[in-house]
Nucleic acid binder design. Sequence first.
DNA 1: CTGAAAGCGCTTACAG
DNA 2: CTGAAAGCGCTTACAG
Lengths: 356, 356
Amino acid sequence: MSAKPVSLKVLAARLGLTVGTVSRALNGYKDISPVTRDRVKRAADEMGYRPNQTARRLSLGAPETVCYLMPRYSSSIAQPFVAQLLQGLGEALSKRNWDLLVSHAESSKEELAQIDRLVRSGRVGGLVISRPLKNDPRIRLIQDLKCPFVVHGRTASSDDYAWYDVDGDAAFVEAVNHLVGLGHGDIAFVGAPLQYQFAQDRLNGYERAMLGNGLTLTREYTQIADFSDEGGEIATNMLLDLPKPPTAIVCVSDTMALGALAAIRERGMVPGQDISVIGYDGLKFGTHANPPLSTMAQPQAHAGRRLGDMLLSIIDGDDPTKHQELQRAYLLRRKTDGPLHLAEAGSIVSEREELQ
Amino acid sequence: MSAKPVSLKVLAARLGLTVGTVSRALNGYKDISPVTRDRVKRAADEMGYRPNQTARRLSLGAPETVCYLMPRYSSSIAQPFVAQLLQGLGEALSKRNWDLLVSHAESSKEELAQIDRLVRSGRVGGLVISRPLKNDPRIRLIQDLKCPFVVHGRTASSDDYAWYDVDGDAAFVEAVNHLVGLGHGDIAFVGAPLQYQFAQDRLNGYERAMLGNGLTLTREYTQIADFSDEGGEIATNMLLDLPKPPTAIVCVSDTMALGALAAIRERGMVPGQDISVIGYDGLKFGTHANPPLSTMAQPQAHAGRRLGDMLLSIIDGDDPTKHQELQRAYLLRRKTDGPLHLAEAGSIVSEREELQ
DNA sequence: CTGAAAGCGCTTACAG
DNA sequence: CTGAAAGCGCTTACAG
């Protein structure tokens, strides 16, 4: 179908040289005379020669290709970070003219099979995975395969591989402290299933900060739900149905926080006044939420670039454990965090009701 | 770095056969005795043999790889459709065990260079591009390279290649007709730069529907801005500053519509009551806008799958022009479209002011 | 039914 | 400085 590209053979024939010589000239070998080197390069340009990468990689024994394993969706809200991450990865890889493959699997089992095929068939020389589970079978498999890899996120025992993560624990400490500073004490947590390490990290931060502020943890104030806006909405409804609803909620993601806002508005309350909500991610569309969502934001722009650079270094032989990078999230105040006041009046009412 | 995989050679040696025989057995050639075929397959399984794809593809002369050219961002709102599209493409390709590459360029010039390298170096056997320009240089280049490709969208002269698109013209006719049915006549258009064909298509639909309803087109009611939420906000501010502002606005995308809502709210007006807004895309996050955004939605889920299937068929030799698929968008009413009433009162006031 | 051989388009020691 | 040759790991006519 495609037009036949010019090969080293025809280029060599045109020049009256052997393919070996032409190859060395093109690859800048020192033992080629400057004059023929120039002659070869000029001819290559003229004829539009492009080395066949498949042949080159077979000869080199290196696929010069990296694969990103796309996260499976638990939500219908597309994962906005994927496009950015791919862009960053691509930038890092293109400096060396490596290729970026993407792979998507329907199930965990399928994903493992795909990883196995991908590396054992010599198609990829490195992998990057996102959002690891606490004890992620992919990581064990990749380690068994001895394939270089980097993780976007961390697992529980994250000491023996390379990763790039944002400190979710610290972020939730900051979020809770901020709310306490605003006068809140009844602070609830809306989270995702704890098989995800990031969900556990953020819960840990929440709990640590609650205790650190002398507040008590209750089962009812910790709502784990599906990782989606609907999940956030359901979890928040559970909280609002409590005899003593919280006056503030921290959410494990902006997407879940949007669901929380919906649940709150549904009851005629206004987020940021009657009840505070803080999300996590710092996604742009939070500025268009109703009202604009306060959130723990992260410098997501160069996650992909960093991960790509790390992976390349490791493939070059670097010790993976030297590449562990923890970013810090920062509080981005928009309109859904506010001081306890109307909410306080509400809680006084319910205390009165309790007295009766 | 990676563990050494087992090759055909060692597998053959283990079985006391030649590599040719083992290869044919594995590939289901008819002229291999059933007993050795089984013996070979069993041994391959046991030893965990995976054919080296690089070698296989070199031998076959086919890269079995397709590349998606990621759209460049004109907006900081990540493009949510990319992840979905990649997923669909991946599904279609994985049926045949093909790989999906992604490529991202900073500039148009770079992108053209990348396309050239990608196909001339034999790395990809097909391409898919999104959001073509009216007269897209990428398409001409790819055609010159005689590389199979499909387009997510269309250009002005879209008759000689394969594409999958949503009928933006018809969608805007429907949106305008709907608004006219609600009593609106002063309907404005917030659009993206017209070098994008989709921007032109949607503008065409708007204009056609306006004229079809006996309404007049004015320069002031057609605002072209940066393809982003900020762009939508700026454009809408221009409209609202007009002596006679529109009572309804159709926006070329949900993202721009979010900006429009922001501009409207900023002036203390409420979208859907004081002024109607209809977006385009049907993105999920529109449900969380303030208020929830009415939009022309599209069945985006299987665009990727269809594009992948089309591309594969074309690579197999199908006539590209047989694969041109036009989807229909549908109106998804949420809360930002409403009848003309408060808005009408407002326009009477301004008419009175004009009399003075 | 299986083996021996050529070839895919490169790279890279090894001679000269 | 350049040529001749082997090799990367497969596939596939061609013999026998």
